[in-house]
Design a protein around this nucleic acid. Structure first.
Lengths: 115, 115
DNA sequence: TGTATATATAAGTATATAGTTATATACTTT
DNA sequence: AAAGTATATAACTATATACTTATATATACA
């Protein structure tokens, strides 16, 4: 009896295509352990705000990430309830931790905290 | 002590981008358990020979697959010695077996055997 | 040697993708 | 209410991608 959950090939390739971009893949790895807002990503990736926003939209459209507004900021986090989260997680496991980017942000006083 | 082997993010996204195409992803899953030649893929995917050949070239360029000529045919197989094979394998594990395509080929007498 | 089969490659084309700039929207603060 | 900050979206552009068709190459076989 085989109880392994498999993912439809079309679906899997769609997810892999989305992760097949260095910016989005790094975002996912970062979000795995830290909530981040758009302006933090702008700083981390040294990319324009619209470029970051568009990457996040793709991740959100397929519901890999959730967003939550807190005041001016919109915080993004991993959607652990995603149907294919185990698949995503098994991919992210192979990637190096990205804590340095967060530490750098904190050192520069650019980490957004709005509690 | 953390002994997990991680993959550089640039490298990982490059691999994921390659797998982020339904044809190539299915090819990889098929090759995981069966050697196949170009003309078999042409039949399975109902795609033109150059289209198949070009997908296989991308997989071969990054050394995810090996090729071996036997007479007229060139057989492709998974490169289990690829540096990132564990990563690739952990992805393919989540995909449904593609044995049906092979069985169909055999039923139609289109499976190439050249021993 | 000539013809058929299998595969690769080159060149062209349509579409997808990732960025850009400009502008709109939403919230905060004064 | 006005100005500032954070984010989203629209429109545009350059490049990448996945095909196509035409042709070249390699092997098999009569």
């Amino acid at each position: 009896m085989n109880t392994t959950v498999t993912i439809d090939l079309q679906r899997a390739s769609q997810l892999l295509k989305l992760l097949g971009d260095p910016t989005r893949l790094t975002m996912m790895k970062l979000l795995k352990s830290h909530e981040c807002c758009v302006c933090e990503f702008v700083e981390i990736f040294k990319m324009s705000q619209p470029a970051i926003s568009q990457h996040l939209r793709k991740l959100r459209d397929i519901e890999l990430v959730k967003e939550e507004r807190r005041g001016q900021w919109i915080f993004f986090s991993i959607n652990e309830n995603h149907e294919n989260y185990p698949f995503i997680q098994s991919i992210l496991e192979h990637l190096p931790e990205q804590n340095e980017s967060i530490v750098e942000l904190e050192e520069q006083g650019l980490r957004v905290c709005c509690q």
